[in-house]
Design a binder for these strands. Structure first.
Lengths: 123, 123, 123, 123
DNA sequence: GTGGTCTAGACCACG
DNA sequence: GTGGTCTAGACCACA
């Protein structure tokens, strides 16, 4: 369920973190659900456990998960984390839209593009 | 005209590259214009010349500039680079919009947010 | 009467131990009182009996309880344990106060803060 | 300047983090000052560089420092971090004071104890 | 030189 | 079984 590209410049632990975060936000993994164990994910992705551990720590620090030694790691998605994430995405979106306008994309074209995607449930 | 934050985790040369790219795309620096010399920019930003040089090389590799031996570097913005950049930005935008929908942002809210920004010409 | 947060990073047995210690120090459980049986507490808190057992052992080792084979565990609060605990708390308090001063908190503000809390009997 | 006790139950990286945080808060290391390099501190404390690195990451995440690859790590102490830290310390202080009262320490004794420490500049 | 990432392998406490 | 910590040693990009 998580894709990792070893040739990508982005660190592996960030790719894993982002993949898990996406699964949590999209509800594939629901709040309270158990995340795969560090060793299990390490095995299935063929990545060193320490790297997976680092991804889990980052996820926990951002509020998308919590870990209990001896029990496992669990997904979380509190309201404040959601609003914070929304704010961040909207800021990024503004920058992109602004640059697209400079590149000659009209607001109509933008709306059309987004309507095309409207309702899509998959990548 | 270019802002560099030494505390930012992003490498300096990327910040310089992105700043110059933005100036070129927004037309502040027009195609054919001479870019500031490595030494000049190095001095005004208080950055190691090697770092500036690296930014220029990246810019040239992406097609936003070309250098003429003994004369300097010049801005460029050919059509294929523009369309390539547009494609990249639209792809990023799709991902962001998709995640925003999962976060409970309706299409109406999204349109409203973008209309608010409509017409903005500055950062 | 004891709150255990499974999401807390602190191990469960420490949370149980601290909860019981607090009940003993505050007099809710008086010296000589029988502590709930391991099985009873295990059941009411939905925690593995081994974990409860570990909390009781820690409590006993610190002097806040003693166990009688076949009869159960009982609360204790001998003078030497009280003075030892007081010494420990005062040492922690000194460190905190010192750091607060460096953070710009004046002695007046500190007194005012503590007067506000004065008389509070509950959490 | 930093003391690390290998027998302490607290992880080494936390001890290093707390030691550095204390130096920053007390002004021994001022905001903007360069922190010792990962390798230098690793050598002088006889601790693996990865462990020091982890301490620095934690410090950065809490806002007490920032790192620039290729340049070094630097101290920081923004106002919001200070107020946040003050809030945390006051909360801890309240818990301690409350327990001390249950242990029979009167407010007068508490004031006397704190007055004794008043003006101390060293541990 | 710097910080950052990754692997390999080990040990520990917790439940 | 779990997560967490630590070491050793390697490689990389950045300045």
């Amino acid at each position: 369920m998580i894709e990792v590209d070893f040739r990508d410049a982005r660190p592996i632990y960030e790719q894993v973190r982002d993949g898990l975060r996406r699964l949590i936000i999209t509800g594939v993994i629901e709040a309270g659900d158990r995340l795969p164990s560090v060793r299990a994910l390490s095995g299935s992705l063929a990545i060193n456990p320490n790297t997976i551990q680092k991804a889990y720590e980052a996820l926990e620090q951002e509020g998308y998960a919590y870990s209990v030694a001896g029990k496992g790691s669990f997904a979380a998605l509190p309201a404040d984390v959601k609003t914070e994430r929304r704010r961040e995405l909207l800021a990024r979106l503004d920058l992109i839209v602004q640059e697209l306008r400079y590149l000659g994309v009209t607001d109509d074209e933008l709306r059309e593009h987004m309507n095309k995607r409207e309702g899509d449930e998959h990548d």
